Computed example of a mutant assay.
Amino acid sequence: MYSSATPSRNWFDQGGQAYARFRPDYPARLSAFLSSIAPDNDLALDVGCGNGQLTLQLASHFAAVVGVDPSADQIANAVPHERIRYQCAPAERLPLPDRSASLVTAAQAAHWFDLPVFYGEVRRVAVAGGILALISYGAPRSEPGLEERFGRFYQEEIGPYWPAERRLVDTGYATIDFPFEELSAPRMDIRLDWNLAELLGYVSTWSAVRRAREAGREDVLRSFAHELADAWGDAGIKRSITWPLNMRVGRI
């Protein structure tokens, strides 16, 4: 439990590899489901792949996978695999030939895209009957006492620092234009048991936290970390954290 005698720690100064270390992995059944509805399992394209969390899982189901991201730093931290080719490229200029991808995914990334241009690229690179899946998850859920404090931090304290695109994530992409034959998807959650350092490391990857730090609001971040530590108790205790997944899935 935090007290004034506890050495001060900046939980939010995690360095450039924080995204690779702390972003939660997707459930294995997600890639299994997507591969089951694709017309074939020849090639999957993961757009805005980050450090390759979903990309790596798709490699268990597809003969080849291409992961693209505009950030060279993210690509540099991606986990290599013999069936994966990573490439630095934007969603609006996909580095694939026409009619080549059976599945196109964008996990926790589509809110950053110029969607009409991206959709045009998807139609170009997808095979007939190919699948497009936009996947997102919002704020994590935990035990009631922790979730209440977490919610106040998420909505009120750093709420003003979220980019406008974050609203699309919070609504599960429900309000975006999705001009494809839409398919139903099973309910899925990300479920992890994390200690305090892992949860706060994850929070450090949020764009709103980065912007709050740039605005000189370290006080808001420190206050939240200390109060969450008090509510958590022993920082080494693992507690259940859940993120409900949201999906828009369509056939091209």
Rank of each mutant, 00 (worst) to 15 (best):
Y2G: 10
Y2C: 09
Y2K: 12
S3P: 10
S4T: 13
A5Q: 15
A5V: 10
T6K: 12
W11K: 04
W11H: 14
F12Q: 09
Q14E: 14
G16W: 12
Q17W: 08
Y19E: 05
A20M: 04
F22Y: 14
R23H: 03
P24A: 08
Y26W: 05
P27N: 02
A28V: 11
L30H: 04
S31D: 06
A32W: 09
F33A: 07
I37L: 03
A38T: 01
P39R: 06
N41Q: 15
D42E: 15
D46H: 02
V47C: 02
L54K: 00
L54V: 04
L56G: 14
L58T: 03
L58H: 04
A59K: 02
A59G: 02
A59I: 05
S60Y: 11
S60T: 14
H61E: 10
F62E: 00
A64G: 09
G67M: 05
G67C: 03
D69F: 00
D69Y: 04
S71F: 09
A72E: 13
D73F: 05
D73W: 02
Q74P: 06
I75E: 00
A76P: 05
P80N: 01
E82L: 12
I84G: 02
R85Y: 05
C88Q: 13
L94T: 00
D98K: 09
R99M: 07
Q108Y: 00
W112G: 00
W112F: 06
F113H: 08
F113W: 02
D114Q: 03
D114F: 04
P116A: 11
V117D: 07
Y119M: 09
Y119L: 01
V122K: 03
A126Q: 12
A126N: 07
V127S: 02
A128F: 10
G138N: 04
G138T: 05
R141S: 15
S142W: 07
S142G: 14
P144L: 05
G151P: 11
G151M: 14
F153V: 06
Q155P: 05
I158A: 10
G159D: 11
Y161M: 08
E165P: 08
R166K: 13
L168D: 13
V169Y: 01
D170P: 06
T171Q: 12
G172P: 03
Y173G: 05
A174N: 09
I176H: 06
I176Q: 05
F178H: 04
F178G: 07
F180N: 08
E181L: 13
S184L: 14
P186L: 08
M188A: 07
M188C: 03
I190N: 06
I190Y: 06
L192F: 10
A197F: 08
A197E: 12
L200C: 00
L200A: 04
A208M: 05
V209P: 02
V209N: 09
V209G: 07
V209T: 11
R210C: 12
R211E: 11
A212D: 10
A212C: 13
E214Q: 15
A215K: 00
D219C: 07
H226E: 15
G233Y: 01
G233N: 06
A235V: 14
A235G: 14
T242V: 15
W243F: 13
P244S: 08
M247F: 05
M247C: 09
R248M: 00
V249H: 03
